[in-house]
Simulated assay, not measured.
Amino acid sequence: MKALTWHGKRDVRIDDVPDPVLIEPTDAIIRVTSTAICGSDLHLYELLGPFLDRGDILGHETMGEVVEVGADIRTLQPGDRVVIPFNISCGTCWFCRRGLQSQCETTQVREYGSGAALFGYTKLYGQVPGGQAEYLRVPLADYNHVKVGHDLPDERYLFLSDILPTAWQGVEYAQIPTDGTVAVLGLGPVGQFAARIARSRGHRVLAVEPVPERRAMAARHGIEVFDLDGDTPEQLRDLTQGRGPDAVIDAVGLEAHGSPGISVLQQAVGLLPDPLSRTVLEHAGVDRLAALHSAIDIVRRGGTVSLSGVYAGDADILPMKTMFDKQITLRMGQCNVKRWTDEVLPLVEDPADPLGVMDLTTHHAALTEAPDLYRKFQRKEDGCIKVVLRPGAADSGRAL
């Protein structure tokens, strides 16, 4: 089959690789009909290469059709249409039963002290082959799927794999008061959905984003948008009686604009031999913290900062005095996809499309175009906000 594989920093390629096969009786194989490029895929493209091997298959936003099931599978059969959550969880352990599927005890990557395994996401999270491919092996498939109907297009459902529940969790964690205001930093795909979800709940949403096309998209959904400049914090305070928003959602993460010194460090890490660079990434402060520092600055006293953006450094310096003095609540973490599915799925299937899932994708392409689209997405060129790839596996000649 064809798959998008990692070969080095900013070097991803379409390769011919072996088709996946059933390894455990709890596995299933799906034919991928749609797969997306996620903002966190860009961390692999740019920074986290020391935890990847050449030829690793990337991608963790995937849906498709079941083509083969293991002997112990009870809830799936060939022909079923499914979305695959990006985190791999068992559904029965202590954490899964409490809605913390991203901490699943069955799939935790204990070698690196990490939570649940993820599709297509480095040794830190299990090095499980990802879904930017024609076929995908799904472990623990009885639980690791969301079964959907056949009537609506893929795009209605695909974002249930990651970014839509991630945004939902970000809003939940923000603890916005009933009549409250939330600021969203970053209007990439997760920020777009977080802003829309908060707006659909009746909150006032102030969103900060330096890219004009992303601001324009959010404005279509009733979001008040602001460019990123030195006056932005004061603007947001002026709009909230001088106090600041009740909550701030950081939808940017480790590759924020600003923090030039850390940007240089991130570039230098990529030049080190893998063992040394892994040590730096595991023990140094390698995150650009501009967005997080802005969130802490902007949020009102007694407010909440919710982190949906990914951070990776273990020695990042935070303004603890300010956080303590302002009595800030900080919530964060990998999304627990299955925890939110039952709440989000009816909104996705609503004919009115209240979250605008059909107004997010800016680029549809064949899987073979993925390397070029990784470049465009990282550089924010050509109005690129969300990329959906169609592998076209029906012509791959897989024998079943």
Rank of each mutant, 00 (worst) to 15 (best):
G270R: 06
V264D: 14
L360V: 13
L272I: 03
L355W: 13
V337I: 04
G302Q: 01
S294T: 12
G285F: 11
L292I: 07
C384Y: 06
S308N: 14
S263F: 15
G270Q: 06
T329G: 11
T322S: 06
E369D: 12
S306A: 07
A256H: 07
R278W: 07
G261A: 00
E381M: 06
V310T: 07
H364G: 09
C384D: 07
I328F: 07
I298L: 08
A312M: 15
D353N: 01
H283L: 08
Y311Q: 04
Q334P: 06
I328N: 05
P319R: 05
Y374F: 11
G302T: 00
G285N: 11
T329I: 12
H364M: 10
G309K: 05
I296C: 09
R278C: 02
K326H: 10
H364E: 14
G313F: 15
R379W: 09
A256P: 12
C335R: 11
V286I: 04
T368E: 10
A290Y: 11
S306L: 02
K386A: 00
L281A: 01
S259A: 11
M320S: 10
K376I: 09
P260A: 00
D316V: 13
L265Y: 14
V264S: 13
V344E: 04
S294P: 11
D297S: 13
Y311N: 05
T322V: 06
K386H: 01
P260V: 02
A290V: 10
L360P: 11
Q378T: 12
V286M: 00
A268I: 13
D372V: 08
R375H: 14
H364D: 10
P351E: 03
Q378G: 12
P371C: 01
G309Y: 05
L292V: 03
V299E: 02
D314T: 15
Y374S: 01
L292F: 09
L271A: 15
M332F: 15
F324P: 13
D359M: 09
P351Q: 05
